[in-house]
Design a protein around this nucleic acid. Sequence first.
RNA 1: UGACACCCUAUGAC
DNA 2: GTCATAGGGTGTCA
Lengths: 392, 392
Amino acid sequence: MADAKSLSTTSSGEKKRKRAAPGYYAVKVGRRPDIYYSWSDTLEQITGFKNAVHRKFNSLSEAEAFMNNDGPAAAKPLQQKFYAVQSGRVPGVYTDWPSAQAQIVGWKGVKHKSFATRAEAEAFVAARKGLTYSDLSATPYSRDDVESEASTPDARKGCKVGDSPSKKQKRNDGSAVAATISGDIELGTGLLPPDAEDGFDRTIIFNPINGDIEYKTEAQLSAQKLQPTGEFSGPIIIYTDGSSLGNGKARAVAGVGVYFGSNDPRNVSEPLPGTRQTNQRAELTAIQRAVDIVPIDREVLIYSDSNYAIKCCTEWFTKWRVNGWKNASGKSVDNRDIIEPIVNRIEERQLAGAQTKFTWLKGHANSPGNAAADALAVNGAREAKQMLATAQ
Amino acid sequence: MADAKSLSTTSSGEKKRKRAAPGYYAVKVGRRPDIYYSWSDTLEQITGFKNAVHRKFNSLSEAEAFMNNDGPAAAKPLQQKFYAVQSGRVPGVYTDWPSAQAQIVGWKGVKHKSFATRAEAEAFVAARKGLTYSDLSATPYSRDDVESEASTPDARKGCKVGDSPSKKQKRNDGSAVAATISGDIELGTGLLPPDAEDGFDRTIIFNPINGDIEYKTEAQLSAQKLQPTGEFSGPIIIYTDGSSLGNGKARAVAGVGVYFGSNDPRNVSEPLPGTRQTNQRAELTAIQRAVDIVPIDREVLIYSDSNYAIKCCTEWFTKWRVNGWKNASGKSVDNRDIIEPIVNRIEERQLAGAQTKFTWLKGHANSPGNAAADALAVNGAREAKQMLATAQ
RNA sequence: UGACACCCUAUGAC
DNA sequence: GTCATAGGGTGTCA
């Protein structure tokens, strides 16, 4: 068969051996297990492949039965092995490597091993331990908190601002906020109400440079109020995060979290708008919120744990802009609708004399700011889920 | 060395009759940085190697230029940037990001920054001391970049402005921004500026498909009265697309997508009927659905990204009809069973006084309609796959 | 030989 | 879910 094969593109002479011969070649173990139409295609899959398993059938259904090991007499295991997938797409014991492999490829943190007996394999699977990441159902806030928040009128439908994980006090609504600013409550000071239980201590401070928690200096203790309101004084520090419950699934719901500081009214906790509820869009949207909220001429430092989002906004967009927003596959870049406004905004800010910096943070590490943003995001997502539920 | 290339992967004799395209794989960061002639050799250098940097070139000189960071044409970002590595493996100025990155990854306390001019970059490198942490972060913009960028703001064709319902500040149009920020708005309060919530910009429009706010197209701007309302006047616009998961393989599943508009009940998302689940049949079937659904006497404009399908229905069929449906190779034309009903329908429509027009769209470009049709098609294909799965 | 589609993967990063 | 870097293929016509 050496040559000829699979040309299909040439207009010369013959070409399709295809439909003429109704042969179905099931390659069960080979380079790329699948059912092929021609022997030459099949050959490519099995030549030089150790322990390749293949067979020809006259009907597609037979071939498929062979591929699914439930087939009647189809599969004849030369030497039975049991593939235990302890951690993977669908953990369990598989009797053929392709099936097991299917649970493994593209999965991160997989654990699998092959055994000679099913019992051993099952024991291995059962020995799974540790990370059941069932935090999806975790509800970080009490019902009361959410409801009191929800009763706060807001210009934006379905969106919430100023929600804080540590909120223990009722906040007055819209018009009163202005009074609040110049009045009794200092914005963004990070002060906690007396009964705060979230572990924040106003006498300590997170040092973003080395990640340490340090006691504040006297100056820091007395000068906090300058941070958010001043036109001077250092960059505005913002933590952004996105959350997507059930990411990748059809009914995923995503939320956006932006954390300026404890009880800071600029904090954002809201559902991700739009129909594509992905983690990436949530992360990007959080950044978008951040750069939109902040004064145009104030330097900001955005902490995000999304390498993707940061790279989008700092590196990749330059290439995308000159190449017409095409990724490496020549397809149009996803989430451009969020990325482009962000970089536009950043450049506007630059024009106004304000830098917009990003620093990547390891997620789930020990950053209180990141944790707070995460909580806001998860809350936003949960809100979205609730809206979905009540809408139906 | 010209040849040899590309083998070495399999123990089998020959195998790939690939065209002799000379590939030069520059491994800049990897196990043994060098230029390799085959991808498999390259793979050995980079798999499992953290933050490997590699790239393929068509000529040896390009690859070498890439290896020596002074390479002029190594990476040509069209928009030259200079990456200053102040503190890193080898401090200096680099002209491409991969080279600079190579000096940075795995290095602690790195300081780097990009500039629009080499002079600025060199100044930055020379100033290696006095670390304000602002230097740590990625600030890919320089004044020059931003200004040149802002001076060409016309790229707004089809660009989205973002979906942020919580937009806090009006932006764009530099002068207004400048006035705003230096003027009456309290900085850092997050309050809406006086002119923010009126927010009525007739150049943007809410896209109910994805929830985004987008710039209107020229057509929308000039003809917005006519377009959305018409049961009369103007052609019906339809986007068609086909999808074939695993195209070319025996178990491929295909889907058909026809998009009339958001939530339009005429939209189609269904599996491709029949046993031949190919991309072309899916594309054609989508068109068939479109012309069948639409009233016979209404003018339609069908957008498809399938050059093949459009040509079948507009050009080639005339020849085929007179030559007995034989293609250039003398073989009978494929998919005639779909093509013929389509052209018949088109001619019926013509008799009824209605034109049927086709416009080709570049796939995966920035057409929301095409994207919507694509989503419908993929959805239909997945539906088919699911049916297959449950049927067994 | 070209064109337009449609796919299947690997590696790395998060 | 996304990007980057790579590799492989068919569907179809002229």
